[in-house]
């Protein structure tokens, strides 16, 4: 049963990250998710210090609020100092993460966060986590499975309803705004969705590997897909396959699940990457134009 829970949660998170990541990768904003995932730490620690009785809901809210503040800070520093986005990201996330670590070391006894888990993820702990029990009898499984499922539902519904809008804005921003699409409102919604996904993933797979879940499967799918819908589909499949593969790899080496999943994602990426490069070379040799088949 433990294996099922772990694989289920990682697949749910994997699909969410893959969908959000597809758009982030296409719009070259992937590193933003990295910055956000690092920045939420001080918010969470502060919440533990301020609120006596923490539960999972407050945890997520605190993280989400911090995520929002950090994106605003990145934006603000970029504008004020005239920095490129990546510079202000580097400054802000390291600062916020440092504050988090300092708070954590100052209150080690009162905050039940282990700094290792922030880095390495927490997937193997899922089966040991508190269960959601109704009427003291029915167990609905651990909380993370429900939060990641909820996240997935929100992401899928948004994409299903607004697929054309997302496609239009991501492909041709100026054309969309000439058409009268309220691009800033759409961007805001998308940023909110990103923050939510990053926050929920952060608590399970660790601050750093979020970027892997967000970038690698979409980047792999983008190499051979010719439609956005295909990118979404294939990146989800790649993600799930890596989650299953990663779990067993981790079991075999007795190592971190989240880390192993990332490694499997990386292996899949390199297989596709090398295959595509070889095919391009081969096609060139034969004087054929590169056709992307599915």
């Amino acid at each position: 049963m433990a294996a099922v829970w772990i694989i289920a949660v990682s697949c749910l998170i994997g699909i969410c990250c893959a969908w959000i990541g597809s758009i982030l990768v296409i719009r070259r904003m992937a590193m933003l998710s990295d910055a956000v995932s690092h920045s939420v730490l001080p918010g969470i620690v502060a919440a533990y210090l301020l609120i006596e009785e923490m539960d999972y809901g407050i945890f997520i809210i605190a993280a989400a609020v911090t995520a929002f503040i950090s994106t605003m800070l990145i934006e603000g520093v970029s504008k004020l100092a005239n920095y490129r986005k990546d510079v202000s990201m580097g400054i802000i996330y390291t600062l916020l993460f440092s504050i988090g670590i300092i708070l954590l070391s100052a209150h080690q006894d009162s905050v039940p966060i282990q700094s290792d888990h922030i880095i390495q993820g927490n997937l193997e702990m899922i089966p040991l986590e508190e269960l959601w029990i109704i009427n003291d009898v029915y167990s609905l499984g651990p909380y993370p499975i429900w939060s990641s499922l909820l996240n997935l539902v929100v992401v899928v519904i948004t994409f299903a309803l607004a697929y054309r809008g997302i496609k239009l804005i991501s492909f041709d921003h100026s054309y969309a705004s000439v058409k009268g699409v309220k691009t800033s409102r759409w961007n805001l919604i998308f940023m909110a969705l990103t923050s939510l996904t990053v926050v929920i993933s952060f608590s399970e797979i660790g601050a750093i590997l979020v970027i892997g879940f967000i970038v690698i499967p979409p980047a792999t799918a983008l190499i051979f897909s010719k439609k956005l819908s295909h990118v979404l589909l294939y990146s989800s499949l790649i993600s799930c396959a890596s989650c299953i593969g990663g779990y067993f790899l981790a079991r075999h080496f007795d190592s971190s699940v989240a880390g192993s999943i990332c490694v499997v994602m990386g292996i899949l990426f390199f297989i596709v990457f090398c295959f595509d490069n070889l095919r391009a070379k081969f096609a060139q040799k034969n004087g054929v134009r590169i056709e992307h088949k599915e």
């Binding site: 390495q120 590997l209 690698i216 971190s256 999943i261 990332c262 490694v263």
Partner: peptide, 16 residues
């Protein structure tokens, strides 16, 4: 992003 996460993932695997 790809290289960062693969390498770090590998590091996490090794340390655990």
């Amino acid at each position: 992003g790809i290289v960062l996460s693969i390498f770090f993932g590998l590091g996490i695997m090794l340390i655990s």
